[in-house]
Amino acid sequence: MDYYLMQLVNGLSQGAIYALMAIGYATIVGVVGMVTFTHGEVIMIGAYAAFYAFSFFAENLFLGIITSFAASWLLGIVIYKVCYERFFDSPRHIPLICTIGFSMLIKNLAQIVFGPNMKAMPQPIDLGFINVLGVRINTIQILIIVIVISLSTILYIVNSKTRWGIQLRAVSQDKKASALMGINVQRTTMIGNCIGCGLGGVAGMLLAIYYQSILPTMGGVLGLKSFISSVLGGLTNIPAAALGGILIGVTENLGTAFLSNSYRDVFAFVFLVLVLIIKPEGISKKVGGRP
């Protein structure tokens, strides 16, 4: 029983990371209005940025968050320029293929620049355990959940209270109308894209700390999982996407407890097919965007 409880806790903390990835993904799809395949690579770059920050400067968690967020933000600008900016009026498959190409580019450049092998991730905080109701909980797990919740709260406040957030929501609802209202649509879209990327980058760092390792090809499956989490919210609904991420994290960890660990990535896919069969439009009505 304890074992399953522990797996549940593992699932929740891992699900929290997936939720952060998915929040980023849903933000991007909502604002840009196009589906992206680059998110996995954005996550990977965030993880590597934190890795180098830890290795060269200090093993400071706050520094890691800032670096990974900034690095992914910058990558977000490039992605916007390469994959979206000129394609708002084109048929949808063109920017989509462009993101596939860009994701291939980053993944393979990363293998050339960072080296193709797995590296150990420095641990910015000491490993400790807390006993809660007889379940040993890792301090990192608690930290992950705290960081994810605080970042989501910040995003929520930015989205609902600030001028930026209002512009972002306006743009994700209707680009033409926003332009008529005097919003700089291109810049706002880019910022929305960058915020989503930045969150993905932090998620990448957390994941690397959680697994204590990084790999240039880690992005592929993660990008897929971000998408699958967002499917639950019709790709653009942020809270539903977060819920999807948590559900996938829990399913994966409980699933591997019953089945073999080698089938870990299968669960997310099964989850996707189930959602598509049962509730293809997601649990909420689509708001804005045209993915």
């Binding site: 390469v82 462009c98 393979n108 450049l109």
Partner: peptide, 20 residues
């Protein structure tokens, strides 16, 4: 093979920009 994939990737992007 990484360089090969980099070239594919660039070619894909170039195609999407100028000759979808």
């Amino acid at each position: 093979s990484q360089y090969r994939m980099v070239i594919y990737a660039i070619l894909i992007i170039v195609m999407m920009w100028w000759r979808p």
